[in-house]
């Protein structure tokens, strides 16, 4: 046996797991559709102010409820505002809410879940109890309660501060919606992430391949990096994708019900709510935000499915 014969054949390239997964993801057509749409959504959300043909607030009362045309691609609403511009700004609202909710819930969830899974025993029992309690809180009810109990006093206090000090900081109360409503959403959405990471760590810690690596004398830091994290990360990435979509839909639902982002800040939810009042006469007012919301939801679920398959080598053919 010569050394030459042992060399790896040239045509067989070594790919990392991430690259392998990406190749698999791209091979899945629906996932690519989802990915393109999601990337497009983020692009629109980030560069929104440069893309909107009109100011999303400017009203043209002579051109109310106009159907789609070259001047207004998605038409105008009942105050003569350009619907395309409002949909674009609505995507900003959705993405901000989606990201803040998911990242907050992820940070809390990962921390508590990993803590429970790693230490076990009483710590774990307490965290599981906390998860159960939190999951029993209905999110809609919580958001409504916060809306009626915490938000008005805070907004009033800020108004008073503005009058008293003249500080511009207190003038804009819109971000209070974001922080209060969706901060509270994050506070009750973390259990799902916590449960995922806890289960992952619990099962992987006792897996035979971790023991096998220990038997080879692989150091702990390397075991965590090469064995525990790759095996745990798949479900987390899938969770992020699914949770982003879910959070955006939740934001729309709350705004639709009037407990989310307040007009005139556009959200797909409050636009759908507006359109619903006049849809028999002007269906385009409802159609645009509803269609965008539907497409975004489907895109995230395609992407999530594709990621799930791509990140799991056991499902590869």
């Amino acid at each position: 046996m010569t050394d030459q014969a042992l060399l790896l054949p040239q045509e067989e390239k070594q790919f990392s797991l991430a690259k392998d997964a990406f190749i698999r993801l791209v091979a899945n057509r629906l996932a690519v559709v989802g990915m393109v749409l999601v990337v497009f959504l983020f692009f629109v959300a980030i560069f929104g102010p440069y893309l909107t043909p009109y100011d999303f607030l400017s009203q043209d009362l002579l051109a109310r409820n106009k159907p789609p045309s070259w001047e207004h691609w998605f038409g105008t609403d009942d105050l003569g505002r350009d619907i395309l511009s409002r949909v674009i700004y609505g995507s900003r609202t959705a993405v901000i809410v989606g990201f803040s909710t998911v990242s907050f819930s992820l940070v809390i969830g990962l921390f508590l879940g990993a803590l429970g899974g790693y230490f076990g025993g009483k710590v774990d029992a307490f965290i599981v109890w906390l998860i159960d309690i939190t999951m029993s809180i209905p999110s809609l009810l919580l958001v409504i309660v916060i809306n009626v109990s915490l938000k008005p006093p805070l907004v009033n206090w800020m108004d008073a501060q503005f009058v008293a000090t003249g500080n511009e900081f207190y003038r804009n109360t819109i971000w209070v919606d974001f922080v209060l409503v969706f901060g509270s959403l994050a506070l009750i959405k973390w259990p799902k992430a916590a449960r995922i990471i806890r289960g992952q760590i619990l099962s992987i810690r006792n897996k035979n391949y971790v023991v096998a690596a220990e038997a080879l004398g692989v150091p702990t830091s390397k075991i965590v990096r090469r064995y525990v994290i790759p095996n745990a990360i798949g479900p987390i990435i899938v969770y992020i994708s699914a949770a982003l979509g879910e959070a955006m839909v939740l934001e729309s639902s709350f705004s639709f019900l009037g407990v989310g982002v307040r007009p005139p800040i556009p959200s797909w939810g409050n636009m759908i709510s507006d359109g619903l009042r006049i849809w028999q006469l002007y269906p385009h007012v409802l159609a645009a935000p509803a269609a965008v919301l539907a497409v975004v939801t489907i895109a995230f679920s395609f992407l999530g499915d594709g990621l799930n398959d791509a990140l799991n080598p056991r499902q590869w053919k």
Binding site: L17, N208, Y209, A212, G217, R226, Y227, P230, N231
Partner: peptide
């Protein structure tokens, strides 16, 4: 370096991600 281990269940003793 000095000790090698062969485990009982080959189906679960290899890291599926490597």
């Amino acid at each position: 370096s000095k000790v090698g281990m062969i485990f009982q269940d080959p189906m679960t003793s290899l890291n599926p991600f490597m």
